[in-house]
């Protein structure tokens, strides 16, 4: 299963990078979202795959048993999911705003930092 998840991670990265290289603003943001998933899956797979043994201390026990899923990568990924959402939400609203301002969805047309004069009016 590690092999399949490694392939899935690679596919997420490939898709993310491909989309980020597109000139369309929308595709670029979709690429960023995919990259977020990719990073999470990477950490998750590397943390070791365990079936059906969540890091939960059973009633009457003082600590986890011998076999359990590593809680640390899970804590990291949890943080990453939430922060990733914050970044994605901001990004999505930003591209909407950018599109309204510069009237284009083509990143290559946005290489000038100075806005055209008619936009300042």
């Amino acid at each position: 299963m590690t092999f399949l998840l490694a392939v899935a991670t690679g596919a997420l990265y490939a898709g993310g990078f491909y989309l980020m290289m597109r000139r369309s603003l929308f595709k670029m943001i979709m690429g960023v979202v995919l990259m977020g998933h990719a990073a999470n899956l990477l950490i998750f797979t590397l943390g070791g795959l365990v079936r059906g043994l969540p890091p939960y201390i059973a009633e009457g026990q003082k600590h986890l048993g011998e076999h359990f899923a590593d809680p640390l990568p899970q804590a990291l990924i949890l943080t990453a999911i939430v922060i990733g959402f914050g970044v994605n939400a901001f990004g999505v609203v930003l591209i909407r705003r950018v599109h309204e301002s510069v009237k284009t969805g083509d990143l290559d047309e946005m290489i000038e930092t100075d806005s055209p004069e008619e936009l300042l009016k």
């Binding site: 590690t2 092999f3 998840l5 490694a6 392939v7 991670t9 690679g10 596919a11 997420l12 990265y13 490939a14 898709g15 990078f17 491909y18 290289m21 990719a38 990477l42 797979t45 590397l46 070791g48 890091p55 590593d70 809680p71 640390l72 990568p73």
Partner: peptide, 25 residues
């Protein structure tokens, strides 16, 4: 994009094969 995806797949497979180093977990 496919090359870097393949590279990452290989890296994951290599790393997952390493003996466990003792987790902070």
């Amino acid at each position: 994009a496919l090359s870097i995806g393949a590279l990452i797949t290989i890296l994951v497979l290599m790393t997952a094969g390493l003996p466990e180093m003792g987790s902070v977990g």
